[in-house]
Amino acid sequence: MSALKVLHVITGLGIGGAEQQLRLLLPHMDRVRSSVVALTNPGPVADALRAEGVPVIHLGMRGNRDLSALPRLTRLIRRGAFDVVHTHLYRACLYGRVAARLAGVRTIVATEHSLGAAQIEGRPLSAGARALYLAGERLGTATVAVSGTVARRLAGWGVRPSRIRVVPNGIDVPRFAFDPAARRAARRRLGLAPGAYVVGGVGRLAPGKRFDVLIRAVAALPEDARLLLVGEGGERERLERTARECGAADRVVWAGAVDRELPGLLSAMDVFVSASADEAFGLAIVEALAAGLPVRYVACPALEDLPPEEAPGARRIGGTVPEVVAALESVVRERHAVPAAVRRYDIARSAQRLTSLYERLHNGPHNGPHDDLYDDLYDGLYDGASCR
């Protein structure tokens, strides 16, 4: 069978979960010839993709209502004679599906990366956003959910279950293995004492991540506690002000947005906490588990969709400051073996499932009846285990 030509259309290629997930997937898709179009902001992930030999095109879209991007994208898809168009993130899904249809592409896949219970990509859900989403979704062939939780949310929204597939996010598991030398080096570089109790948080500095809860919780811990925040975003100034107000300005270490350095930073931590109450997957939590860290989280579909014994080092907690403080005070500072849950989310496995989906859709009937919504939940991903 000849390799399928697949065009990935994504809103931007800055450092973010969906963008990094795309970069991780492509090298493992050996039966696919991939190209990428960024509607806007090509960013550092575009450079990384090009360095790995993936063609990347910047469409130069000027905003959500830049309709001139639609004919440009349509022409690009038609000239490329792509077998599959795969869209990522809200804006790219809307424009990409329409353009693919206009260009005559029969197989159109979209991944829903960031659908929470009350927000999509960090923005509050509204009736208008939902209506527009559903109108665009009907132009595609299939919608991929990154977790069983997201699949159920999509079905609840009105997406036909026969059109939903579950292909979970994945990580490069060996890359995150705990490294004592990297721990020492990272702590020296960041000015963290060897014996400091380091609480870690990773993600965009956005309101929904609730890093202010972590700051206030660490401020209530003994003096040797430090908070290592990995990420960047519009909430940085407000979070710095919060740290000053609760007397923790010198106890918060801001690592900024990183990529290659992330495994070393996870090695430098003693416990990982996610205070976000609304997640679509919880990729940073899975990465922390791969680093052997004890994990405390408020919401994580990646773990909630699995039996609890799959991740013994992780505990679900309440999201108030006192609850986070109590959880941190009771953590035993020791590394854990990489749990079974992490192995289920290996990036090569996700890439294989996605490649098989492309081939099945491209070679089979389109928009016809399909197996039940949960087939992909159990087939291969959960090996028949019941979901909680």
Rank of each mutant, 00 (worst) to 15 (best):
V36Y: 00
A38R: 04
L39W: 00
T40G: 01
N41L: 07
N41E: 03
P42M: 06
G43R: 01
A46M: 12
A46V: 13
D47C: 11
R50L: 13
R50C: 14
R50E: 14
A51Y: 11
A51W: 12
A51N: 04
A51S: 11
E52F: 02
G53F: 14
H58P: 02
H58K: 06
H58C: 09
H58V: 10
G60F: 12
G60P: 15
M61G: 02
M61A: 15
G63H: 12
N64K: 12
N64F: 12
R65T: 10
D66F: 01
S68P: 09
A69H: 00
L70K: 01
L70I: 14
P71G: 07
P71H: 08
R72Q: 14
L73E: 03
L73D: 05
L73W: 02
T74G: 07
R75S: 15
L76S: 07
I77F: 05
I77D: 04
I77K: 03
R79L: 10
R79Y: 01
G80V: 07
F82T: 09
D83M: 04
D83W: 02
V84W: 00
V85L: 05
H86G: 10
H86V: 11
T87W: 03
T87G: 05
T87L: 07
H88D: 10
L89V: 12
L89K: 00
Y90P: 00
A92P: 07
C93G: 14
C93D: 15
Y95R: 01
V98P: 00
V98L: 15
R101E: 12
L102C: 14
V105F: 00
R106F: 03
T107G: 04
T107Q: 06
I108G: 06
V109I: 15
V109Y: 01
V109M: 03
A110R: 10
A110W: 10
A110Q: 12
E112W: 06
H113R: 06
H113Y: 04
S114K: 07
S114R: 11
L115P: 13
G116A: 13
G116H: 14
G116E: 06
A117H: 03
A117V: 09
Q119H: 12
I120F: 02
E121C: 09
G122L: 09
P124R: 00
P124E: 13
L125R: 00
L125M: 09
